[in-house]
Design a protein around this nucleic acid. Structure first.
Lengths: 233, 233
DNA sequence: ATGTGCATTATTGTATACAATGATACTTGC
DNA sequence: GCAAGTATCATTGTATACAATAATGCACAT
């Protein structure tokens, strides 16, 4: 059956974004990323059974890396494993995405607050550069780059928060909604507004105003939610 | 070398609390819980290397379940895996615990807010019973039970929030700080105050006052942090 | 004495083999 | 015909075998 396979022996599309925990250059890591993307992108149907051998064949690897990947995905909540029975897709629903945004609105606020106390000069410069360059690409409608810069802006703040725990959690959520973010930032109007909000957050952080930074970062996500609703998501 | 082993063939101590994602009755699940407890309880030193065969021998299982468990722990952030090199303990520091409490203070607030909208009558009853019974056991100084009831109270609210995502996250954090919670609730004064706060949160939820419920739940955790500081943690 | 190169060992990465469990379908008795 | 029991198959769970990589230590040259 498994003919039109995409072999994972080389280093292919799974390489893109993902500044992830899981390494990309082991079979397991690549299988993990691959299945995750496939679940997040909706390639698998909800509750679809993920059989170890099938996926293994499809990806040209044995059961072992697939098993390990599935076990990890279980922990991420993207896969539901029933012992001795099988692994089932447990994708994220519209409601889940909405929940994630609301949760993020709080945690991004906290990250910005903490960043006020612990951010380094280099990180501030990185953020300034980010906002400046993003402004350029928004004018040019380079949407791929805009999304990437948006990611970097947020990730930098996560790091600047000085909390491994918070950084890890926000990164995970950020990646969960990546598909949505691409759509959201695909509108010039939203991209522009988002960047202005970034600039405001940055100013608050630079002036070490924790209350304001938290409020602005929180509202930045709320504003994103509003935009998504407007786009019917 | 591995003589004083504790075999995982039977169902032993790993059974206790953990309403976890990972199932408890597969070798992998038990190995996972076991290593996790050992890391959280500080049995392993920070950065200690976790060798698959050693752990396997110690627990009387082969490398396979150990590997899978380690991969999952990596995702939970308790283990740091360097490809082709090894798995290293990445326990949670005092600061991590503090961070978790602050993060929880926000998310518990959100959970309480959402619970106002979605809680069922059965869940309300469960909470009422919980507060009532806890009051009894606090009088009797049954600290084991008190901790268990505290867990149940919070878990019930997580469920009542109606958000799988939030529930999952809060459960994980809740478990992370279990050791600390045991210490905290070990003081009658704190146990009593905590239960009063639970009662207040419950009342707010019953009256469907989202703002108040969020505020109280938030302050409940802040109050816990204050107590921990008082205990020098 | 010290540093480089190679052989050896230890350890992880992957694949496969075997065991156990659950699903399916067929047979048999009524 | 139909239900219960059973045999067969599919699939997961665990163990082991083999491959690849990194660590270690020793020999040898300088």
């Amino acid at each position: 059956m498994s003919e039109t396979k995409n072999d994972l022996t080389g280093r292919n599309e799974a390489d893109e974004v993902s500044k992830e925990v899981t390494d990309k250059y082991s079979l397991r890591g690549r299988v993990f990323n691959r299945i995750r993307e496939d679940i997040l992108s909706g390639k698998y149907a909800e509750n679809e059974e993920l059989k170890e051998v099938s996926i293994g064949n499809e990806l040209g690897v044995s059961r072992t890396p697939v098993r390990e990947a599935l076990r990890q995905l279980e922990l991420e909540g993207l896969v539901n494993i029933i012992p001795n029975k099988g692994a089932y897709v447990h994708g994220i629903s519209q409601k889940d995405i909405h929940d994630i945004y609301v949760i993020r609105s709080y945690l991004e606020g906290l990250a910005a607050r903490w960043a006020c106390e612990r951010i380094t000069d280099e990180e501030i410069e990185a953020l300034e550069e980010n906002v400046y360059i993003a402004n350029f690409h928004i004018g040019k409608k380079h949407y791929e780059t805009i999304v990437e810069l948006d990611s970097q802006f947020h990730e930098t703040i996560y790091k600047a928060s000085g909390s491994k725990i918070l950084e890890h959690q926000l990164s995970t959520y950020h990646h969960y909604v990546e598909r949505i973010r691409k759509i959201s930032l695909g509108r010039e109007e939203r991209a522009k507004k988002a960047n202005e909000e970034h600039a405001a957050i940055l100013e608050a952080i630079k002036s070490r105003n924790g209350d304001l930074a938290e409020k602005l970062a929180h509202e930045h996500i709320i504003s994103t939610i509003a935009n998504l609703n407007k786009q019917g998501l």
